[in-house]
Amino acid sequence: MAKKGQKFKKYDIKLRLQIVNEKINEGKSYAFLEKQYGVKWRTIATWVRIFKRDGSLDVQKKGRPVQDEEVNYKEKYEILKKFQEFLEEVDREKK
C-alpha cells in the first residue's frame, strides 16, 4: 500500500513494452527480468496483466470525463431565480 508522500518511479513506455514482450514472447521469468532491468517483479506482472487485458500499456485517465458542452449561466440563473421566488411564495402561503 502506498504511504503518504511516497514517490513512484516512472518508466518509459518503450522500456515497459520491451520488458512485457520479453516476458510474453520469449517466456523469460519475472526474476530474470527483475535482475536485468531493476524493476520489481510485481510491477512487471502488473504490466503484463494490463497488456493482456487492454492490448497496450497506454496510461488511461481516471475519473469523470470532461464535458465539452457550454454552460449557459444566464439560463441557470433565471431558473434559480424563479425557484427562489416560488419558495418565497410557498413560505408566504404557510403564514
Score class of each variant (00 low, 15 high):
Met1Cys: 02
Ala2Trp: 12
Lys9Gln: 14
Lys10Gln: 11
Lys10Glu: 10
Asp12Glu: 15
Asp12Ile: 09
Lys14Gln: 10
Leu15Thr: 05
Ile19His: 00
Val20Cys: 02
Glu22Val: 08
Ile24Ser: 12
Glu26Val: 11
Gly27Ile: 14
Ser29Val: 10
Tyr30Asn: 00
Ala31Pro: 06
Ala31Tyr: 03
Phe32Met: 08
Leu33Ile: 02
Gln36Ile: 00
Lys40Ile: 09
Arg42Cys: 04
Arg42Val: 04
Arg42Tyr: 04
Thr43Val: 07
Thr46Phe: 07
Thr46Arg: 05
Thr46Ser: 07
Val48Cys: 01
Arg49Thr: 07
Ile50Gly: 03
Phe51Lys: 05
Lys52Glu: 14
Arg53Cys: 03
Arg53His: 08
Gly55Arg: 06
Asp58Ser: 01
Gly63Phe: 10
Gly63Asn: 06
Glu69Lys: 15
Val71Cys: 00
Val71Gly: 08
Tyr73Cys: 10
Tyr73Ile: 12
Glu75His: 09
Glu75Ala: 15
Ile79Val: 06
Leu80Phe: 14
Leu80Lys: 13
Lys81Gln: 08
Phe83Ala: 06
Phe83Ser: 06
Glu85Arg: 05
Phe86Glu: 04
Glu88Lys: 13
Glu88Thr: 11
Glu88Tyr: 12
Glu89Ala: 11
Glu89Lys: 09
Val90Phe: 08
Val90Trp: 00
Asp91Tyr: 04
Asp91Cys: 03
